[in-house]
Amino acid sequence: MIWQLELALFAMLVVPAIVALQVRDLIASVAALTIYSLIVAALLAMMGAVDVALTEAALGAGITGVLFIGALSLTRRRSVD
């Protein structure tokens, strides 16, 4: 486990999380969440939890984004708060 790489991944993890919370366009928010899931999957694989990393990569970075966009197509695209 290389701690520099892990620190870099954790630093990268903060950016899409903040973007997903702050951005007004909800599809951009879903894209940021997908990037977040991908970085989390890389982190989990580095920590040795390959089972969880597989699940996170397939569900978090794959299907959840599609389901979120499918749900967004039933409502409005921009957030109002």
Binding site: D51, L54, T55, A58, L59, I63
Partner: peptide, 10 residues
């Protein structure tokens, strides 16, 4: 690593 849940998700 892997199993039923992961394979189903993939």
């Amino acid at each position: 690593p892997g199993g039923g849940f992961q394979a189903g998700a993939i």
